[in-house]
Deep mutational scan, measured.
Amino acid sequence: SEEKKKAKERLERLGASSELARELLDRANGNAEKAERLLRKLL
């Protein structure tokens, strides 16, 4: 979806690899905010 694509791009801008961004979104069930929080914990 367009929303998921935007979320993935945002995670990548924050420093996630394409693969990591995809994994985070999967774990967050597509929830962009939750995926971002997970990423911030990792960085």
Rank of each mutant, 00 (worst) to 15 (best):
S1Y: 13
S1I: 12
S1A: 13
E2P: 09
E2R: 07
E2I: 11
E3N: 12
E3Y: 14
K4N: 14
K5F: 10
K5D: 13
K5Y: 12
K6R: 11
A7G: 08
A7P: 04
K8M: 15
K8Q: 15
K8I: 15
E9P: 03
E9V: 06
R10S: 05
L11C: 02
L11D: 01
E12V: 11
E12W: 03
E12T: 08
E12A: 05
E12Q: 09
E12L: 09
E12N: 03
R13P: 01
R13W: 11
R13D: 07
R13F: 11
L14M: 09
G15H: 02
G15S: 02
G15D: 01
G15I: 03
A16L: 06
A16Y: 02
A16S: 02
A16N: 02
A16C: 00
S17W: 08
S18M: 07
S18E: 13
S18F: 06
S18R: 08
L20H: 02
L20Q: 07
L20N: 01
A21M: 05
A21K: 02
A21R: 02
A21N: 01
A21W: 06
A21Q: 01
R22L: 15
R22K: 12
E23A: 13
E23V: 12
L24C: 07
L24H: 01
L25Q: 01
D26V: 11
D26Y: 11
D26H: 12
R27Y: 11
R27L: 14
R27Q: 12
R27E: 08
R27A: 12
R27V: 09
A28Q: 02
N29S: 09
N29H: 13
G30A: 02
G30K: 02
G30W: 14
G30C: 03
N31A: 04
N31G: 02
N31R: 03
A32Q: 08
A32S: 08
A32M: 13
E33H: 11
E33I: 10
A35K: 00
A35N: 00
A35D: 00
A35P: 00
A35T: 00
E36L: 12
E36D: 02
R37G: 09
R37D: 13
R37C: 12
R37H: 10
R37N: 09
L38M: 14
L38C: 10
L38E: 11
L39T: 00
L39R: 01
R40G: 05
K41S: 09
K41A: 13
K41F: 13
L42Y: 12
L42V: 06
L43A: 05
L43C: 08
L43R: 06
